[in-house]
């Protein structure tokens, strides 16, 4: 790479400034504020603030609602990741087998990614709406009474599908690229070695895809835990009876609706820690298995 020596000490900083300012204002400063606030308690009118040490965190560990939210988040994140990666892999394998019109299918399958999460949420909200939606209407014909406003499992299914749907496109693109980077001769060699299509997939293709799969696993779990806020907000708003109240939505709800800033800040700090730990664990342990 070409290295440029700046004679002016100020210029490099000026060039970096826009990015640094954005990082500072929208990430570092709020993160620091969250950490600071997590040790404080405000009165109901925001007039006095009091240092309470770890009391906010202690309160969380004893809160049944919070523990429920943790469980809901775990189920939600696992379901979204498995569903979006599973469907994406299936479609990628199907497209990889095609000889013609691959690009048309790829383009069509990538479209959902361009849809804003809130719009996707509204879309699914309409499709699943117990009163006017098309899906409950069809389900009723086969004798299932769909109502995500009252049924906890229906609500969970709705948010999982709505969240996974968008992510499928993204995963699909990476899987297709991953599949195409596997030399055809490997699969041919396996075919001559007596492995049928299913066996070829599990013995050769899938292990060679593992770097892609691992990367997507990290991205999808982080997506499910953080980026699905707008999907939840547009569909179930955490309900019914806390059934879809994932951590990131609870942070927003407790802070901006419930005005409990201290607890909300403590929750967001916990959330930050969870994601940091998850990522470190994944890179430490899972990556060892994918190296070949």
């Amino acid at each position: 790479m070409k290295r440029t020596a700046f004679t002016n000490q100020l210029l490099p900083w000026l060039l970096l400034a826009p990015q640094l300012i954005i990082t500072f204002v929208f990430f570092l400063w709020p993160a620091a504020q969250a950490i600071r606030q997590s040790f404080l308690r405000e009165d109901a009118f925001g007039i006095s603030t009091q240092f309470v040490g770890l009391a906010n965190f202690k309160a969380l560990t004893g809160s049944a609602q919070y523990l429920n939210s943790l469980q809901v988040t775990a189920i939600f994140a696992i379901c979204v990741t498995v569903l979006s990666m599973g469907v994406a892999l299936l479609m990628a394998v199907a497209v990889d087998r095609m000889i013609r019109s691959t690009s048309i299918y790829t383009t069509l399958l990538v479209w959902p990614y361009a849809v804003a999460p809130a719009v996707a949420g509204i879309l699914w909200w309409f499709i699943f709406n117990p009163t006017i939606g098309i899906l409950p209407y069809l389900l009723e014909m086969v004798g299932y009474d769909w109502n995500h406003m009252t049924s906890k499992s229906d609500a969970m299914i709705l948010v999982v599908i709505a969240s996974a749907w968008k992510q499928i496109s993204y995963n699909f693109l990476f899987f297709v690229a991953g599949l195409q980077s596997i030399p055809a001769s490997l699969r041919e060699a396996a075919a001559i070695d007596g492995a049928g299509p299913v066996r070829r997939f599990f013995d050769i293709t899938f292990p060679l895809l593992s770097p892609t799969t691992f990367f997507l696993l990290v991205v999808n779990i982080v997506y499910a835990m953080f980026d699905t806020f707008s999907v939840i907000d547009a569909t179930t708003e955490g309900g019914p009876a806390q059934a879809t109240n994932i951590l990131v939505y609870k942070v927003y709800f407790d802070g901006f609706v419930g005005q409990n800033m201290g607890s909300s800040a403590a929750q967001s700090v916990v959330l930050m820690l969870i994601v940091i730990v998850l990522t470190v664990v994944q890179f430490r342990y899972v990556e060892k298995k994918v190296a070949y």
């Binding site: 030399p183 001769s185 060699a189 396996a190 075919a191 070949y292």
Partner: peptide
């Protein structure tokens, strides 16, 4: 007949060894 059942073995230009 499928390649597997033709009782042949092939050596490829890029060797096609299974890297994992």
């Amino acid at each position: 007949i499928e390649p597997a059942d033709r009782d042949i073995a092939m050596v490829f230009q890029n060797y096609a060894l299974y890297p994992h």
